[in-house]
Amino acid sequence: MDNIHQIFKASPTEGDVLATVIQVNGSAYRKEGTTMLIKQSGSTIGVLSGGCLEEDIKYRAETLIDGQSKSFLYNLKSEDDLGWGQGSGCNGEIRVLLEKIDASYQAHLEKVNEQLLQGRSILTVKKLSEDYEVIGYTVIVDDNNYWTKALNIDANMELKEMKSGIHYSKELSIYRYFQWFHPKPRLFILGAGEDGVPLCDFAYKTGFHVTVADWREALCSKERFPQADRLLIGFPHEVLPKALHPQDHIVIMTHHFERDKEILQYVLNRPFKYIGIIGSNRRTMRLLEGESVPSNVYTPVGLSIGAEGPEEIAISVMAQLIAVKQKVVTENGKQANCRTLVYNK
């Protein structure tokens, strides 16, 4: 889950400290771009490790003055209690950048959040000193509009292919930290039955923007789905054309054969990231009426873990959704090793 959306919801203000993992060597609990906010009160939003670094990071954050940044390297390789890994033996090193928020940086963060709420991805490029402190930055919106030009950016650079992390420019002889911020992935739960309730809750907690849609007003209510970002009441042909975007994730779970068929007629052969269909393969084949199953359709929905009941099924669906979002499930449905791909560098 990307902590940045939780952080923006907490409204970072002057005097707070933003902590960011900017470099990982070996394996670590979180990857580059992971953020944590340390409020002036001492409370925190987000985590950077399994709990072994947060207290030290909070202590170091107290030493910063407004507008100041510092970075610290933590060695997590030790298997005894003398290292920062507290005996975890994570076999990696992480560099954490601390930035104390002043009025200028607060305004910068608010602009980033505005763009994310509009569904745009943001790239921040920070020039770093030899001590990995911030000495300048550029902010780029997806369409290559620049907010500031404090840094020289090579026009030929494939920005969308740049991964979050530290990159050295031989031409400019400088280190720069690239970080992508992306809008929340969107999940549409089509069907407001009992099995949709835990799915909505888990999806919200793992960072999805969740919409629940159903034609039955008594089921599609805020009382049943308090964590839903949006509720849509109406038949599929009424709500789907206005609501769905190409990059959305969809789970079809109305338990109504004709409604599921109507939904599939609209979503099939469209470039949605994920289309999950609850029910057996035989039922799905009947819904498809002999058509082949597209690569973005997952049926039966969820990873095969022997799940039973609404909560377990929701967990299996979320595991599959996260794997698809993190690109560790191939087009033919084979599951890759998530931990290796996500954590090891």
Rank of each mutant, 00 (worst) to 15 (best):
E62L: 14
E62Y: 11
T63D: 10
L64V: 15
L64T: 13
I65F: 15
I65P: 15
D66S: 15
G67A: 12
G67R: 08
S69F: 14
S69K: 14
F72S: 03
F72A: 10
L73G: 12
Y74P: 04
K77T: 11
S78Y: 07
S78I: 09
E79T: 13
D80E: 12
L82F: 15
W84H: 12
W84T: 11
G85R: 13
Q86L: 14
G87V: 08
G87N: 11
G89K: 12
C90I: 12
N91D: 09
E93D: 11
R95N: 04
L98H: 01
E99K: 10
K100M: 14
A103L: 12
S104C: 05
S104L: 06
S104W: 02
S104G: 01
Y105W: 06
A107R: 07
H108P: 04
L109H: 06
K111P: 01
N113M: 00
N113E: 07
N113F: 04
E114V: 06
E114R: 03
Q115H: 02
L117V: 06
L117C: 01
L117K: 12
G119Q: 07
G119H: 06
R120V: 01
L123M: 02
T124N: 11
K126A: 12
K126I: 09
K127Q: 07
K127V: 00
K127E: 04
E130K: 15
V134G: 01
G136I: 03
V141H: 09
V141W: 01
N145V: 11
N145F: 05
Y146T: 00
W147A: 00
W147G: 00
T148L: 10
A150Q: 13
L151M: 04
L151R: 05
N152Q: 04
M157T: 12
E158F: 06
E158D: 09
K160M: 08
E161Y: 01
K163R: 08
S164T: 06
G165E: 07
I166F: 08
I166S: 11
I166D: 11
H167R: 02
Y168V: 01
S169Q: 06
K170H: 08
E171S: 14
L172A: 11
I174K: 12
I174E: 14
Y175I: 05
R176C: 08
Y177R: 01
